[in-house]
Design a protein around this nucleic acid. Structure first.
Lengths: 358, 358
DNA sequence: GCGGACTGGTGCAACGATGCACCGCATGCT
DNA sequence: AGCATGCGGTGCATCGTTGCACCAGTCCGC
């Protein structure tokens, strides 16, 4: 039984519009698809009036069936529960909306299998473009679809050797970002710094660590002497919300040292918030006793007490770029080359950093 | 030019499967749609083998065109950038996924026009079920589509008199929630309480205030004597992030009073965080000098210093309910009655509340 | 041995939009 | 007159799936 039959609603079809306007469906279709260069203004007017009057909206399923195209893109993130990905979702959707596209949201929960399944599903839905925020260093699992024509934009992940040739990568320059953060701390006079992160399993985590080391070297400090906080239990501690737990635990260990660091660079803001929490647990005041820097500049960074010094990723611009890259590749023909877009991060100085208190 | 032609990929059709299995497309379709009660086991086996071998996935556009059904639901939230809505999106998607449904994400940015446009778009996409988190007290703007058969679940909003008859409302019991919070404070010995919120423009804000008053009365306190913090500039201060600004400003005013309150009930967690900030600005320590209670239990509540006492909404259960209500109404036939689901909130006591210090 | 029921399928006309191939007519050019 | 060219459209097959209507064959009871 058709839904239509049940509710007794009759969706307006192109045929009805055509009848109303006294033309053929083809002509209406021509107008709708911009093939109106040789059409009497009067005819066009009649059609437009009919469309308005009947409240016609083209049926997307029919259109997609016929053309093979559609205006939906997929977004696969670890979890929109994390404000960082929430912000991406929001900006991406905003960019897409402006061009009449929609965003289908998928939370991979950092499960590779789920990630793959989702992309399969999206493909079956006729979605040809996906923004993928993968936790995986390799994209091999989606290669078959890429070979069939799936357009992929990797977000928050720089290109790797084994990546598909057509891949577009969009990311902030992680090394520069954490170098900026480290530099800020050394300029404040800190000499005992620690780096807190989960396992350096992903490319951009490694990059951030590299920036940290570079910052130390630049200040004439010995990277070997710098503390690298326990990286947790292994490759699995990749969580997004759990990042805060990790920060908290790491801070606890650091506080217990004979000579605790006076400044901490955290792998991201959630982790930094956890670090602050852990410092307080240990009786130290973040921003006074110990400086803390985060990464991402999530909304909460400016709400926390102390407000968090952090490295901002220009999310709005990055999201817009992700969409426009995707769109360009979906629309046009011809072979498409992959490329990497590296955005410049920006240090936002707030209350959580200051001169060493000792 | 068809995309298919361009990339040279040939999507597998039901016809190919049929040929491969030596049956007609109808038979494959029958199997796919569970009409297989009278089919030779051997035939079924042949078809399944063919499907696997060719990697066949039904084309959704074609299926939807034919049946008018689909497996996508819409989610309209103010903004997934806000962790509260992010959490909802995540849980709803999770519930949907388990049943093979997808979630199309829409950020209304609290713009009524955008909200309406989105729902129109969703309808044009063939989406028949939408979870709507509307900021608007009236749902009149979507009535035309509801009359055409759109199934709507209102989230975080209790039913109103003018609502469509078929509407399902899902919400926490706001009155009970803030009564629990208030009761907690009075039991700790507080007698000078304040309520901080923006304009009580939405139904659930009014409810929360009602619970606050009920809590006071229950403790034998005079609601008239309770402070109701300035409600800001008017009906516009509905923001999500801005809630914190509002809390901060309100706290500043309260601190300046001759007899400041010893406990504050905030309209939600973001607001409560702002209140904490405002208290500190005024030289008071939240959780020690003044107790603060929030509402929602966002992730940050447990990370903040002090950790925030708050009223938890059982988001996972609420999201699951939203989906199953929607699904039931999409699947079955017959007239559907609206209903309201009120979930029981839970008080989570943390560090931001304690006995009055004086 | 003939009507009826059951079995295991198949045929076919949709669903709504698209866009190429084509059409009749008027005008211009030689 | 004879042909090309431009104009303003229209006809029709097609996309992949669905599910009702139908079919040929077998078996049963009387």
């Amino acid at each position: 039984m058709r839904k239509n039959a049940r509710v007794g609603m009759s969706e307006v079809t192109i045929q009805q519009v055509a009848t109303e306007a006294g033309v053929s469906p083809s002509t209406v279709s021509n107008l709708l698809n911009g093939r109106n260069h040789r059409m009497l203004p009067e005819t066009r007017q009649r059609i437009e009036t009919a469309i308005d009057k009947l409240g016609y909206r083209p049926n997307r399923a029919a259109r997609q069936l016929r053309t093979g195209r559609n205006t939906t893109i997929g977004l696969v993130v670890p979890s929109v529960g994390n404000p960082f990905w929430g912000a991406l979702a929001r900006y991406l959707e905003s960019a897409a909306l402006a061009e009449g596209y929609h965003v289908l949201l998928c939370n991979s929960e950092r499960d590779p299998r789920r990630e793959r399944d989702y992309i399969d599903e999206l493909w079956a839905d006729g979605v040809h473009g996906v923004v993928l925020c993968s936790s995986l260093p390799s994209l091999e699992h989606v290669m078959p679809l890429v070979e069939r024509g799936l357009q992929l934009v990797a977000f928050d992940r720089t290109s790797q050797a084994g990546d598909p040739a057509s891949l577009v990568s969009i990311s902030v320059d992680n090394a520069i970002g954490s170098q900026l953060a480290t530099q800020h701390l050394t300029e404040l006079g800190h000499t005992r710094l620690a780096f807190v992160s989960g396992a350096l399993a992903s490319v951009n985590r490694k990059e951030r660590y590299r920036g940290f080391v570079a910052g130390l070297e630049q200040a004439g400090l010995d990277p070997e002497a710098a503390l690298r906080a326990p990286t947790g239990s292994g490759a699995d501690d990749f969580g997004d919300v759990e990042a805060s737990e990790l920060g908290r635990a790491a801070a606890a260990e650091l506080v217990a040292l004979d000579e605790p660091p006076t400044a901490i660079v955290a792998i991201n803001d959630m982790c930094a918030l956890g670090v602050c929490r852990g410092l307080r647990d240990g009786g130290l005041e973040p921003g006074k006793d110990v400086s803390v820097v985060g990464f991402d500049d999530i909304v909460l960074a400016d709400l926390y007490a102390p407000t968090l010094t952090t490295v901002r990723q220009p999310m709005r611009e990055m999201a817009a770029a992700a969409f426009s890259q995707l769109r360009a590749r979906l629309d046009d023909s011809g072979p498409t080359q992959g490329q990497s877009l590296l955005f410049r991060p920006e240090l936002i100085v707030r209350e959580s950093t200051g001169a060493p208190s000792t």
